[in-house]
Simulated scan of single mutants.
Amino acid sequence: MSSNIVWHKHTVDKDTRANKLKQKPSVIWLTGLSGSGKSTIANLLEKRLFEAQHATYLLDGDNVRHGLCGDLGFDDKARVENIRRISEVSKLFVDAGLIVLTAFISPFKADRDFCRSLLNEGEFIEVFVDTPLEVCEQRDPKGLYKKARSGDIKHFTGIDSDYEAPASPEVHLQYQDEPAEDTAERLYQALKTKGFVS
């Protein structure tokens, strides 16, 4: 952390913004293997939340690599830095009063826990999109598993880099064969039932 800096408090704070938006700001953090369906489900969930009059923003793994994290590679050290940056951005969006959805493999428990540590109790909602590796490989929407198996991609999660599955996520979402729309609706209803969204 830089030295000689002090956090400047603003008159319009998180509670004021949240009250105006009539919602509880939070981070809904979708984690799972590549091809598990995180981005698809997050996109559908955001649409559902938007239709319910929530103010949201979706941070997607590929999208942030075009700008904010465009200078990072995919080895373990770069993955940690990628998630650190996303965590800090997510915290700012929560401070803005928004419901933030993220779709990142985020393979390491410590990195997900770091984001949780930045937020208040109940503001970090971990969603494990639990899709078996063999199903993700069959889908392989970007052809990445094929490249990883052939050695063209190194440090690929699930192949030659570990994925540490959440032990006790707020929502454990199994997703294999059903339509993505149905899975997103299941997630939305689970979030409502647990009181994370209205």
Rank of each mutant, 00 (worst) to 15 (best):
residue 58 L to F: 14
residue 174 Q to K: 15
residue 1 M to D: 12
residue 67 G to F: 08
residue 53 Q to M: 12
residue 59 L to S: 11
residue 11 T to V: 14
residue 41 I to K: 08
residue 140 D to A: 11
residue 119 L to Y: 07
residue 97 G to H: 00
residue 133 L to R: 07
residue 46 E to F: 04
residue 43 N to C: 04
residue 158 G to S: 11
residue 146 K to I: 05
residue 30 L to E: 08
residue 39 S to G: 10
residue 76 D to A: 15
residue 102 T to L: 08
residue 106 S to N: 01
residue 129 V to A: 05
residue 31 T to L: 02
residue 193 T to Y: 13
residue 71 D to L: 03
residue 154 K to T: 14
residue 66 H to N: 06
residue 46 E to A: 04
residue 89 V to A: 14
residue 174 Q to L: 06
residue 107 P to M: 12
residue 35 G to K: 10
residue 23 Q to D: 10
residue 145 Y to Q: 11
residue 26 S to H: 00
residue 158 G to M: 08
residue 152 D to N: 07
residue 56 T to H: 05
residue 46 E to P: 07
residue 159 I to A: 06
residue 98 L to D: 01
residue 19 N to H: 14
residue 17 R to S: 01
residue 158 G to R: 09
residue 163 Y to W: 06
residue 37 G to Y: 02
residue 21 L to M: 11
residue 33 L to W: 00
residue 103 A to W: 01
residue 122 G to H: 07
residue 62 D to T: 06
residue 185 E to K: 13
residue 194 K to G: 05
residue 113 D to L: 12
residue 179 P to T: 06
residue 136 C to E: 09
residue 7 W to V: 14
residue 67 G to K: 03
residue 33 L to M: 10
residue 91 K to G: 01
residue 20 K to F: 14
residue 90 S to M: 09
residue 21 L to S: 04
residue 193 T to L: 12
residue 63 N to R: 07
residue 198 S to T: 11
residue 120 N to Y: 03
residue 92 L to I: 14
residue 90 S to T: 07
residue 59 L to G: 00
residue 77 K to H: 13
residue 122 G to D: 09
residue 51 E to D: 15
residue 105 I to K: 10
residue 150 S to D: 13
residue 194 K to A: 14
residue 163 Y to S: 02
residue 49 L to Q: 07
residue 80 V to T: 11
residue 54 H to N: 08
residue 154 K to S: 15
residue 38 K to E: 09
residue 179 P to W: 11
residue 105 I to P: 09
residue 11 T to I: 12
residue 138 Q to C: 03
residue 56 T to Q: 00
residue 195 G to M: 08
residue 130 D to K: 13
residue 187 L to Q: 08
residue 33 L to Y: 04
residue 183 T to E: 05
residue 116 R to P: 00
residue 168 S to W: 04
residue 106 S to W: 01
residue 191 L to T: 06
residue 154 K to F: 03
residue 60 D to L: 10
residue 99 I to A: 04
residue 166 P to T: 02
residue 101 L to R: 13
residue 75 D to A: 08
residue 178 E to K: 15
residue 122 G to K: 06
residue 13 D to M: 01
residue 162 D to E: 15
residue 180 A to I: 04
residue 128 F to I: 03
residue 123 E to D: 15
residue 69 C to M: 00
residue 156 F to I: 02
residue 126 E to Y: 02
residue 6 V to I: 14
residue 9 K to S: 14
residue 137 E to I: 10
residue 23 Q to V: 01
residue 153 I to D: 05
residue 189 Q to E: 13
residue 182 D to W: 00
residue 131 T to I: 05
residue 24 K to I: 06
residue 152 D to H: 11
residue 121 E to M: 05
residue 113 D to S: 14
residue 179 P to M: 04
residue 95 D to A: 12
residue 54 H to G: 07
residue 182 D to V: 15
residue 194 K to M: 10
residue 43 N to F: 10
residue 68 L to M: 15
residue 137 E to G: 00
residue 196 F to D: 09
residue 65 R to S: 05
residue 49 L to P: 10
residue 167 A to F: 02
residue 101 L to D: 13
residue 166 P to H: 05
residue 197 V to M: 11
residue 146 K to D: 09
residue 12 V to S: 03
residue 43 N to S: 15
residue 185 E to M: 07
residue 86 I to R: 00
residue 159 I to F: 01
residue 62 D to A: 11
residue 121 E to T: 12
residue 46 E to V: 12
residue 30 L to R: 11
